[in-house]
Amino acid sequence: MQQPAADNGTNQSKPNQTRDDNQTPIIENTSNHNGTGLSSLPNTATNIFNWMLIGTLLLFIGISVWLIQSYRKKQPIN
C-alpha cells in the first residue's frame, strides 16, 4: 500500500480547478475614441488640489490678519 506524499507547498494543482490554456482573456475597450483620431482623457481628477488651494489662501489670510493686528498694537495711541 502506497502512502500519500506530504504536502509541503510544492503541489500547486487543486482537484476542483481546471485550466483552459486555449481561452484568451476578454479585454474591454474603455477608451473614448470619437472617430476623429483624437481620444479624450479619463476623468481621474480629485479635489485634493482645490482643498490645498483653499487651505493656503486661508493660511495667508490668517497670517495677514495677525500681522495687521500686531502692527496696530505697536502704534502709539494719540
Rank of each mutant, 00 (worst) to 15 (best):
N8D: 13
F60R: 01
G62P: 00
N22S: 14
R19I: 11
H33A: 08
L59A: 06
T24R: 08
R72G: 04
W51P: 00
S39N: 11
T46M: 10
A6W: 07
I48T: 11
S70I: 04
T24P: 01
N22V: 01
P4W: 13
L57Q: 14
K73Q: 11
Q2H: 03
N22C: 06
P42D: 10
P4Y: 05
N8T: 11
Q69H: 13
Q17E: 11
T18Q: 13
L41A: 08
I48D: 12
L38K: 06
N50P: 02
L67H: 06
T44F: 03
S64P: 02
N78P: 14
G35P: 01
M52P: 00
T24V: 09
S64I: 01
R19G: 03
S40C: 00
T56V: 15
I54T: 13
L67S: 02
N43S: 08
L59D: 00
P4V: 14
H33L: 00
A45P: 01
S40I: 04
L53K: 12
N16P: 01
I68D: 07
N8G: 14
G9V: 00
W51E: 01
Q3F: 06
G55V: 09
Q23L: 14
K73M: 09
I68A: 15
Q17D: 10
S39M: 09
I27S: 05
N78L: 15
F49A: 08
Q2W: 01
I77A: 07
F60S: 05
K14N: 10
I27Y: 10
N47K: 04
T10W: 15
N29P: 08
I26C: 10
T44K: 06
I68Y: 14
S40W: 03
M52R: 07
K73E: 03
F60M: 12
L59K: 00
G9M: 09
D21S: 15
F60G: 04
D7R: 12
K74E: 04
Q3K: 04
I68M: 06
S40K: 04
N29G: 13
F60C: 12
D20F: 12
Q3E: 04
W66R: 12
Y71C: 09
